[in-house]
């Protein structure tokens, strides 16, 4: 069904460096996802800000939304970059309006990450243009295939771009304790930014099938960079006491993971010893009479539980 969506192309020769916008199946899907997330973000904003700043909120939401749409539809680097920066600056400004100066430190780190990501993206596009002599994504992708092999500077820059934008989103997580409750609305706004300015450059520039070494490297390294940048940012944002708490939490999680892992390995070892038995059980469970008996037992247990004490909360 998605493949049957119509494709449109709008030449915008007078805009920026000679731009254009294209809407094909991928763009329609992306626009749809962005629209839903952006709407959630907008509703959350309308609930969380004071009425005195409603005009500013609506204007910023519209500008950043326009940036998202431009980035999603752009068929060239200049329009794409414009959309990315509009969306990024607009979203961070919206979060500042919504949270007030109490979140200034988090916002400052988010702005730094955004500027870092934008600068890296700018250098990527300039570097690819100097190879392709075109701002069209098709030509830039061909240039990336040449310049982005292995551990190249341009791959590293792509990693920084994606990593910094994803880190902006992840940065909301350590701050959740300070907020009244976890706010998926705020996350949905930053998720839009991370999608168009962190992930979309990869989709546009990197081999879509991840068949080349450089493509796989870029993707993996981006994830690593995102985690690294997020940790680094958390260090900047959190106070000492919160940092201690966060470290305790992370170490508790790590201990739990290690313990689970060890148990898992032990169970694996036991399972291997009991392989013939488990194989026989598996075959039994797949048989109809065994499945019916198991389902009946489960249903009876449920009925008894509801009748005599209710389900546990």
């Amino acid at each position: 069904m998605i493949a049957s969506l119509p494709t449109f192309h709008w030449p915008l020769n007078a805009v920026l460096l000679g731009s254009g916008a294209t809407a094909g199946p991928l763009e329609w899907m992306l626009l749809g996802a962005l629209a839903v997330l952006w709407l959630v973000f907008g509703l959350w904003l309308l609930r969380s800000h004071t009425s005195a700043r409603r005009g500013l909120t609506v204007a910023l939401h519209a500008i950043a939304g326009l940036g998202l749409a431009a980035a999603a539809l752009a068929s060239d680097a200049a329009l794409f970059y414009s959309g990315v920066t509009l969306a990024g600056y607009g979203t961070v400004a919206l979060l500042l309006v919504a949270h007030g100066p109490g979140r200034a430190r988090t916002a400052a780190v988010q702005v730094l990450l955004m500027v870092l990501g934008d600068l890296a993206l700018f250098e990527i596009l300039v570097s690819l243009y100097s190879q392709a002599f075109s701002v069209q994504f098709g030509d830039l992708r061909a240039a990336y295939a040449v310049k982005g092999q292995g551990l190249s500077l341009i791959s590293a820059l792509l990693v920084i771009t994606a990593g910094s934008k994803v880190a902006m989103l992840l940065l909301l997580i350590p701050a959740t304790d300070r907020l009244p409750s976890w706010r998926p609305g705020a996350a949905s706004g930053l998720l839009c930014v991370a999608l168009v300015s962190g992930v979309l450059p990869m989709v546009r520039l990197v081999d879509p099938l991840l068949s080349s070494e450089s493509a796989r490297y870029s993707l993996l390294a981006s994830a690593a960079a995102a985690v690294f940048l997020c940790l680094l940012s958390a260090l900047c944002v959190l106070g000492k006491s919160r940092l201690d708490a966060a470290v305790r939490r992370v170490s508790a999680l790590a201990s739990l993971s290690v313990a689970t892992g060890v148990r898992g390995l032990a169970m694996l070892a036991v399972a291997r010893r009991l392989a013939p038995l488990s194989s026989a059980l598996e075959q039994r469970m797949l048989s109809w009479p065994f499945a019916v008996a198991a389902a009946a037992t489960l249903a009876l247990a449920l009925v008894l539980a509801v009748a005599f004490g209710g389900l546990p909360a």
């Binding site: 920026l16 200049a78 970059y81 414009s82 920066t85 934008d118 300039v126 570097s127 243009y129 100097s130």
Partner: peptide, 20 residues
């Protein structure tokens, strides 16, 4: 140098010129 404002165009060409 934030696009689509004028400073972006200057920095774009200067950067390209440097690479050239």
């Amino acid at each position: 140098g934030v696009p689509p404002i004028a400073g972006f165009i200057s920095k774009w060409y200067l950067s390209l010129g440097a690479m050239e």
